[in-house]
Nucleic acid binder design. Structure first.
Lengths: 141, 141
DNA sequence: AACATAATTAGAATGATACAAAGTTAGTAT
DNA sequence: ATACTAACTTTGTATCATTCTAATTATGTT
């Protein structure tokens, strides 16, 4: 059941490379996001790994996730209102497709052509493009 | 102070066209989103129009917004974690640029070329492409 | 081993949004 | 006009994700 694509050593390596201390909790959080590729929420992660950590706190999951995002290992997805989902950031950038019916989230590549071609497979109902950064006004000041 | 780009008659017309009953509250909510183009949150809308409606309830603002979104007049933006923002949907589809520093949200067009050209004006730090619809698995069933 | 720093825990607090029941309004038919 | 009905608004309460705080524990370094 527990497909382990990333060994503990590999997880520790990743954390080291990004200058994040490899606590067991952090490894478990990262491991879950990296192994299952379901773009889980903080709560899903908590429920899944709580078995192995009787005293695990939600705050720890949130703390770990924030640390992992800040370090660049994970990336936040806000594809669904009200919850933040998490995705491995260690791979070529990609868009996401969420099925309105089953809720599953698929990784997709996002070149113009592919986006158009996608309509054959997926029934696209909405596309959101969000860009963040620094605006001209703020760059001057 | 209160720039009125849309007259009450125009607002009522829009609501009629989309088969939404033009209650005063709904007109006020739509009017605020349509006039100011600040992509406001439910709470910002509530605060702004509460002056004119001493007994206005937050629930009414949420109800109105849901009705307006369902009818296709407004569109939800999830560009910022934890809050939903609202935008007029009655215009050519466009992306959004949020400044990490001042928080302002700019409308931008999203063709490949323009996205590339944008880097001259805006300092792009992250791009999110979210697509929703029905996946192949669900289409079969 | 002792100290300093960082991480974890538990529980309470916050804040956006949803819900439920009662009251009000508006549209329609008599 | 009056009464009926359905839609809308209100009020207060509930929920749920996330954050905060203070106390505890673990880790790394001298």
């Amino acid at each position: 059941m527990q497909t382990t694509l990333y060994s503990p050593t590999q997880l520790a390596d990743i954390l080291h490379r990004f200058n994040v201390r490899p606590s067991v909790q952090r490894m478990a959080v990262l491991g879950h996001v990296a192994d299952k590729r379901t773009h889980p929420t903080a709560d899903e992660i908590f429920s899944s790994i709580a078995n192995n950590f009787p005293s695990l706190s939600r705050a720890t999951v949130y703390n770990s996730l924030h640390t992992l995002v800040d370090s660049g290992i994970l990336r936040e997805l806000e594809i669904e209102s009200g919850v933040t989902r998490y995705d491995l950031a260690l791979q070529p950038s990609h868009g996401h497709f969420m099925c309105r019916h089953c809720g599953k989230i698929y990784d997709i590549s996002v070149t113009q052509d592919l986006l158009r071609a996608m309509s054959d497979k997926y029934r696209v109902e909405s596309i959101d493009v969000y860009i963040k950064g620094i605006c001209p006004e703020c760059t001057e000041n």
